[in-house]
Amino acid sequence: MGTARLGRSSVPVTALGFGAASVGNLYRAVDDATADRAVDAAWQAGIRYFDTAPHYGLGLSERRLGAALADRPRDGFTVSTKVGRLLVPTPDSAHRSDEAGFDVPADHTRRWDFSADGVRRSLESSLARLRLDRIDVVLIHDPDEHWRPAVEEAYPALHDLRAQGVVGAIGVGMNQWQMLERFVTETDVDTVMLAGRYTLLDQSAASSLLPRCRERGVSVLAAGVFNGGVLATETPGRMYDYQPISEALHARATRIADVCRSHGVPLPQAALAFPARHPAVVSVVVGMQTTAEVGRNADLAGAPVPDALWRDLTAEGLLQP
């Protein structure tokens, strides 16, 4: 599997990344053994980049990923985690389920904190959960409503940690492209994780953010490439960005699937291949929860897609030129 380095850093990522939110019990629970086998299958498939966050399963994703990687050579893989949400113990609510989409007990609550101290505390906790002595990539996570503390406090703290060699690369991860472009323009980040805004159904980041990343030497990690599920199956699903899809958008996805089918390409294969074609994109990060999902995604990501497919999709107005 191909690898590339993030920005001007020395941190490598594989072309396909393992999104570990799913092993944090995103939407449905799996046991520790299933999660461990999924990470092992990813390793066997050549995946060496693993992305997680405290937010995912209230720390469960980090704990499971750390356990699964514990016996692997430390210089043989790259891990990214995120800052911006501190986990605060709330034992009185442990009898309830988490309300953020993860099937875990609500024994902690998430508290927004983009301060320098919050960044350091978050990383210390992540290191413990991951059982690691260093974090390769740290991303400021979802600062949509927190621009000022994120850029004035969290970013300088990460900049200093990178300068000290404590972390290898720094960046920002969001579901929007506009604020990511501000970070790319106004700071010295190595990478951005762009979720759902450069896909078969949404190329809104193409005209401005991606060229700016190329101009500034910032690497793009493309996430959310299935747009919440609609592009994850050969027949388009009914969920788009975690909400019921509109009829107009579902009809567009169906037209895309039909063109893909005419070229012998499953819709999920095209969804994985599309963002990877852009020269700013160095890795496509996909959530995977089971060995079957890992095997399917690895096979699809490794299969060639004919150029004629992209030409036809563009000719029919389904992709931007």
Rank of each mutant, 00 (worst) to 15 (best):
M1V: 14
G7W: 04
A15E: 13
L16R: 01
A21G: 08
A21E: 12
G24H: 06
N25I: 12
L26W: 14
D32G: 05
A33H: 14
T34F: 12
D36Q: 15
W43N: 01
G46T: 11
E62D: 11
R64H: 11
A67V: 08
A68W: 08
L69K: 07
D71P: 00
D71S: 14
D75I: 03
G76I: 10
G76W: 07
T81K: 04
T90E: 14
P91F: 12
D107H: 14
H108L: 08
H108R: 15
H108M: 13
R111N: 04
R111Q: 15
S115T: 15
I135D: 01
E145I: 08
E152S: 15
A157K: 00
L158F: 06
R162Y: 07
A163H: 13
V172A: 04
V172F: 07
M174T: 07
N175D: 15
E181F: 00
D188I: 01
V189F: 02
V192E: 03
M193A: 06
Q203T: 09
A205P: 07
S207V: 09
R212L: 11
R214L: 15
E215N: 02
A222Q: 03
N227H: 01
G228A: 10
G229Y: 05
E234Y: 02
D241F: 00
P244E: 06
L249W: 01
H250T: 01
T254I: 08
I256G: 01
L267T: 05
Q269T: 07
F274A: 07
F274Y: 15
A276F: 10
R277V: 04
R277M: 12
S283E: 06
V285G: 03
G287C: 09
Q289F: 03
G295H: 07
G295S: 12
R296V: 02
A298E: 03
A298I: 01
D299L: 12
A303Y: 03
V305H: 08
P306K: 11
P306V: 10
P306Y: 10
L309G: 03
L318H: 07
Q320L: 14
